[in-house]
Design a protein around this nucleic acid. Structure first.
Lengths: 169, 169
DNA sequence: CTTTCACTGAAACACTCGTTTCAGTAGGGT
DNA sequence: ACCCTACTGAAACGAGTGTTTCAGTGAAAG
């Protein structure tokens, strides 16, 4: 890996393409050869720019975490507004990826996934604490995450939305 | 696979050992050779008794789903009691496995994991609807599942328990 | 022109994977 | 004694993995 590959323009471009690919195909089962072919490069180049597969995975997870936080408006955000964002169909891919990373980081505390679950919990608690205090913040996060799991599994947006709106602190 | 392998005693015994192994090591990264060595058998025998790796995975997922439901007392169960069960340290392994299966079945809707997420949502909604009506049942499930995710990631039992107890419908 | 160096294609390496093939063993039925 | 069937160990198969080796390329620097 070159010294300045971290900031290479080509690296950023390929990261973006890989991110789009991973949103569709998942991250757990990702392997270099199919990915490289899909985004029109070679495994050799991916390893060159990201150092290793783990490096690429870390970059993709960081990208996902960033995408999740950037999606939210700054300042005070009511729980219902967060839910509206989570439930939007265009965020399905990102949120599936999030669940994937979360689960993996619980089961396999070493490796590139390490700390992903704790990090997102901390991220979101920080956001919710802009408007809520404990135990409401933790409860709101739980309600949102749980409803999201339900929505991703059943696709029943009406029922999950009704539940969040009825009980959001 | 033999005609009656489904009910073989050895099959049941190996399933139990494999289940214990998987609770510790996770199911997503499971592979036959290390598993077989750990539970003192051979990949050949596992394939003979379960037909394929997918067959074994299906059996293990069914076993896990069963373990989760059997843990609950029958009849009406208050949300706080369900949480007490979920938060118990001895169920950590099972619940990590549950998250793993849930995530995988979202990302990879085909294969042996298919339907696992929907199935557990349905299972638990049925339990909660013994005491609650919509939208409280969906909200309670979300609160429980979300708090569980938080607990598995942070290990902060005090904060998550406080949140559940304060907002359980 | 020469040298240098970031970059990349092709092929190979050293695995691991699920599964199959083949050869065998043990045991009950006839 | 014979056969048949359930079962299992050892080895191999073919595919797929991340990674490395090697031989270049092209463009910029000296």
């Amino acid at each position: 890996m070159p010294r300045d590959a971290q900031g290479s323009a080509r690296r950023a471009e390929l990261l973006e393409k890989a991110y789009a690919y991973v949103l569709q195909h998942g991250l757990a089962g990702m392997s270099l050869r199919p990915l490289a072919e899909a985004i029109e490069t070679s495994p050799r180049v991916l390893l060159y720019l990201f150092g290793s597969k783990d490096g690429l995975v870390r970059a993709l997870l960081a990208r996902a975490r960033e995408a999740e936080l950037d999606g939210l408006p700054p300042g005070e955000v009511p729980v219902a507004a967060v839910w509206e964002w989570l439930a939007a169909p265009e965020h399905r891919g990102l949120l599936r990826l999030w669940v994937e990373g979360y689960a993996r980081s619980l089961v396999e505390p070493d490796g590139p996934w390490a700390g992903f679950a704790e990090a997102t919990v901390a991220d979101w608690l920080a956001v919710l604490r802009r408007t809520l205090t404990e135990p409401a913040a933790t409860a709101a996060l739980a309600l949102l995450r749980g409803a999201l799991l339900d929505l991703l599994a059943t696709g029943d947006r009406a029922r999950t939305t009704a539940a969040v709106q009825a009980f959001a602190p």
